[in-house]
Simulated assay, not measured.
Amino acid sequence: ETGTYQVSNYYSLDVLNNNPVELKNQDRVIIRQIPEYYLDRFVKVDGYVNYPGWYKIIKDKTTLKEIIEQAGGFLDDASLTEASLTRSVGSTEYDPEYERLKLIPRADMTDDEYDYLKAKSRERPGRVVVDFERLFVMNESEENIILKRGDEINIPEAKNYITLLGQVVNPGKLIYKEQLTYEDYINIAGGYGWRALDDEVRIIKANTGEWVEAEDIDALKPGDTIWVPEDPPGPKFWDVFTTALQVAGQVAAVVAATMAVIIASR
């Protein structure tokens, strides 16, 4: 009232509706902006849906299933097995141990360090664990996660083949048939190559990239890869021969030196 000081009062909308405040000369009214009101919240849907593109979401409300419905659903050739959800916001984390291990030769690592390096190198940054088949085929609601700004949903084309790599006679892709085992596919591809390690066959799973021993797989899935490793060749004859000569020369030198010492000491 005297003009020597200023008083700031905060009133919520409910208070103003119930108890109107009388304004005086030179009062200043400030209406605050809702935080993040103008922040764009979009997710991207890509791949085998009817209407791929960007879709706006409501914070802490819009679900994965709602967005797929807005995108018109899946096309007939869509692969729910390999469908993925990637989250970019808040997914980048600096791992000093991983960065350190990338600079170290394998020979200087412990087995645990090497296993950690392999696991981190196979990691897919930002990958959100969600099972599209359980959500859209089995209708399990616990898979229906809340989407966040910047999420990317990718629906790839279904793979109706199995890939064979490594020591098989005819590596390549074979049409997937549910009843066939990994040995059946290898036989169809002409059998094992002459340097194949047939007891160390691995299956690379299409949806996770995980390497699994072939004997531990109950059934193959479309898109899986069969890897037949090669038995590394033994040392070449010339390398063995030269190494043997070097060892023999060193032994001869030691024997000669020993004999010289014995003779000199007499």
Rank of each mutant, 00 (worst) to 15 (best):
E210C: 06
L135T: 04
Y48F: 07
D239I: 05
V21K: 11
E140G: 06
K177W: 00
D151K: 00
T63A: 15
D218T: 14
V240G: 15
W211C: 07
E22F: 14
N50E: 10
D76M: 03
N19C: 09
I204K: 06
R100E: 11
R32E: 15
L75T: 07
R28C: 11
N170W: 08
A189Q: 04
Y55E: 00
Y98W: 01
Y176E: 00
I217S: 10
N207R: 15
P96K: 13
L23D: 15
D151P: 00
G90M: 03
V128E: 02
E69T: 11
D27G: 05
L23A: 13
D76W: 03
T225R: 04
I31W: 01
V29N: 14
D14G: 15
G150Y: 01
V29T: 01
W211H: 13
N17I: 07
E69V: 10
K205Q: 10
E97F: 09
R195W: 04
E152D: 05
A256K: 09
L75F: 06
S12L: 10
S12F: 03
Y185F: 11
K120N: 14
T110S: 09
R41S: 11
D224I: 03
I153M: 02
T81S: 11
D131E: 08
D14N: 15
Q70S: 08
I145Y: 05
V43F: 02
P105H: 11
D111R: 14
F241S: 09
R195P: 04
E133L: 03
V168G: 06
F241D: 06
K102Q: 06
N139P: 04
I30W: 07
Y38K: 13
V130W: 07
Q33K: 09
F237N: 13
R87I: 01
D60W: 07
V251R: 08
V169P: 10
Q70V: 06
T242C: 04
Q179N: 13
D27A: 14
P52A: 07
E143I: 01
P125Y: 01
V240W: 10
